[in-house]
Amino acid sequence: MENGIGLDVVQEAIRTVDFLLSQNRSRYPGDLPPTHPFKLSAWREGKTRMESDGPFFEFQDSSAVTDPLEETLELNRAYAEALLIHEQLHQVKFDPRMREELIQRALGILPATELGRFLEIHSCAAALPRNIADSNERLLEAFNLITRRFGEASALAYIMLIVAGLRARSEFENYGRKIDLLFQKVVEGPAVAQMLEMVTLNGRRAGFEPQFRLLVALRERLWQMKPSRLAP
C-alpha cells in the first residue's frame, strides 16, 4: 500500500481502536463533567446517572426519514474514529486531552462545549449560515433541527449569531469560545459547583430545595461578576 502501510497493519490499527473504544465506553456518563448537557438534561427529566440510557448518539440510517444534522454528526463521529486509527498508524500524535476528546466523540458522545457544538452544527449544510440567513423559514427549520439534538439554548445562540451577521466558521469558533469562558467562570464558583454536583448526582430526587439553591447560587455568581455592580 501507499506509504508502505500494509492492509494487515491497517486492520490491526482498526481492531486496536475498536478495543480502545469498547474499554472506554463503560466510563461514561460517570466521567463526564456535571455541566455536560447530557447530565443536565438527565436530571431535568428526572433521571439519575445510573438510570439514564447513556450519552451515546447512535445514528439511525433510515431512507424514510432524513435528518441532515444527524447525518453530519455521524460523519463527524466517524472522522474522530478515523483520527484515532491514524494515530495507531503513527501518522499523527495527539496529546492526552485531545485524545480523550476524540475517544468521546468516536463513541458518539456529543461535545460538552458550546464551541464544539457550534462547529458540529456549522458543518451541516442545512444549518450553514449562508444557506439559511436570508430566509425566516429556513432559520426556523434550522432552529428546530438543532434543538432536537443540542437543545434550545445552543439552537437559540447559534441562530442569534446568524441574525447578528456571523457567517464564517472562525467567527462561530470565536464566539463559542467566549461563551464557554463565561460559562466556566460562572460554574467554577464554589457554591455553584457544589449545588450543581448535588443536583446532577441525584436527579429530581434531590428535591426542590437543592434546585432552588442552585438557581440562587447562579444568580449570586452572576451578580458578583457584574462590572461596577450596584447593591441589590
Rank of each mutant, 00 (worst) to 15 (best):
H86C: 15
S228N: 13
R149K: 02
E45F: 03
Q11V: 15
M1I: 11
H90Q: 10
R27E: 14
E188M: 04
G207M: 05
G207A: 02
P29W: 07
A82R: 11
G203T: 03
R169C: 05
G30W: 05
A155I: 04
L182M: 05
G151F: 01
L139W: 00
E51N: 02
K93A: 05
D61G: 11
A133K: 15
E152F: 03
A126E: 14
T66D: 14
F150E: 00
E45R: 12
E87P: 06
E137T: 14
T113W: 00
R205M: 15
F94H: 09
T113F: 00
E209M: 03
R44M: 04
V192Y: 00
E81K: 15
R105F: 05
L201P: 06
N202Y: 08
E71R: 09
L73K: 13
L32F: 01
D67M: 01
N24H: 12
E173T: 01
I5R: 05
R77V: 12
A64M: 07
V92I: 08
G108W: 13
N136E: 15
E152K: 03
N76H: 01
E87H: 12
N174T: 07
D134H: 13
F212K: 11
R44Y: 01
A217W: 01
I109P: 00
A13C: 15
F183S: 10
G151N: 02
G203F: 09
M50F: 15
L20S: 08
D134S: 07
V9C: 10
Q23C: 07
I159R: 03
D53W: 10
M1V: 14
A125G: 02
Q91T: 07
S26C: 04
E209G: 08
L69R: 04
T48R: 08
L75E: 14
M160F: 01
I103C: 06
M50D: 14
E188I: 01
T35W: 08
A125I: 15
S63W: 13
L161N: 08
L21D: 04
F38G: 14
S26P: 06
L230E: 05
R167N: 07
A164I: 08
A191V: 01
R138P: 03
Q60Y: 09
R105Y: 06
N136P: 10
N136A: 15
Q88M: 15
N174R: 12
L89K: 05
L102Q: 11
S170I: 09
I162Q: 00
M195H: 04
A231D: 13
L201T: 14
N136Y: 03
E209S: 08
R213K: 07
V192D: 00
D180F: 04
P68L: 08
G203C: 05
R25F: 05
I146K: 02
F212M: 14
P227W: 06
P210L: 02
N136G: 08
M1K: 12
E114S: 03
S22R: 12
E81I: 12
R205E: 08
K39W: 07
E100A: 12
S62W: 11
R204L: 12
N136K: 08
S135I: 00
L201M: 04
D134G: 06
R177V: 00
A126R: 06
K39F: 11
Q194M: 10
K93R: 11
H122M: 01
Q23D: 10
P29E: 10
R105P: 05
P37D: 10
L119C: 06
L140D: 12
S63Q: 15
A127S: 11
R219L: 14
G4L: 07
P55H: 09
R149A: 03
